[in-house]
Computed example of a mutant assay.
Amino acid sequence: MLKVTVEILPDGCERGSRVLATAKIGRLRSGSLADYRVELSEEPHGRICGSLERYPRYASTLWDLVARSVAVALTGKEELPPRPQELDIPVRTSSGNTPYVRLREIPEPARSLFQKRMAHSTRPVIEEDPQPMDCAYAWDWTDFLAGRR
């Protein structure tokens, strides 16, 4: 079995690194055309599984096997899904001139990741918003997108 681990290295240093995602690729059938089972794990998405069948072993690099395995788990085919669109979340301004974003307008997985990073941070209560407790400061959202939060 192969295990591919994706880690973040803060400031490029090993110290303080943490695992973000893993891929396990297990060979189910040997031979010149092998079958593989793929399991991708990433929080908050959980596990995604797929199968890569009749892969020509030794015909390319190990990275080709890894890339195709990930693609099959994500799409069911040996091709990448369309590139995701940039997150374009409207920044609103309250009557008190506080710039904010609505958490409900942030698509997954960004919403869950952002909420996790905001767990112990101050958030505004925007009284004129239909869901006043479902807001965050616009600068926190901008910092999150820039990788500073």
Results as ranks from 00 to 15, higher is better:
C49T: 15
A146T: 06
R117F: 11
M118N: 08
G46Q: 04
Y100C: 00
S95W: 05
R18V: 07
V38F: 06
S60M: 13
Q131I: 06
P90S: 07
G147N: 08
T5D: 01
R47H: 08
L9Y: 14
D143Y: 08
S51Q: 14
S41P: 05
R111I: 01
A136I: 14
L74E: 01
E42G: 11
I89D: 13
S121W: 09
V66R: 01
F144V: 04
C49I: 14
M118V: 09
Y58N: 01
T93R: 12
W141P: 05
A67N: 08
R92A: 10
S121G: 06
I106K: 01
V6S: 09
A67L: 11
R149W: 15
R29S: 12
L40E: 00
P130F: 15
S94C: 04
A146G: 06
P81C: 06
V4T: 12
E14I: 11
K24T: 12
L40R: 00
E105Q: 06
G12L: 11
I89N: 10
S69E: 03
A110Q: 04
Y100F: 08
Y55A: 01
P44G: 12
A136F: 09
P130A: 10
A67R: 13
P84H: 02
D140P: 03
L28A: 04
K24W: 09
L62E: 04
A23V: 00
T93A: 03
L40I: 05
G76Y: 01
C13L: 11
P90T: 14
V70L: 15
R18L: 10
P130W: 13
L65E: 07
V19I: 12
P124G: 00
D35Q: 01
D140A: 15
V72L: 12
E128C: 04
E42R: 15
D35C: 02
T93D: 09
E127A: 15
T61I: 00
L113M: 12
D143N: 11
M133Q: 15
P109H: 12
T5Y: 01
W141C: 05
R27T: 03
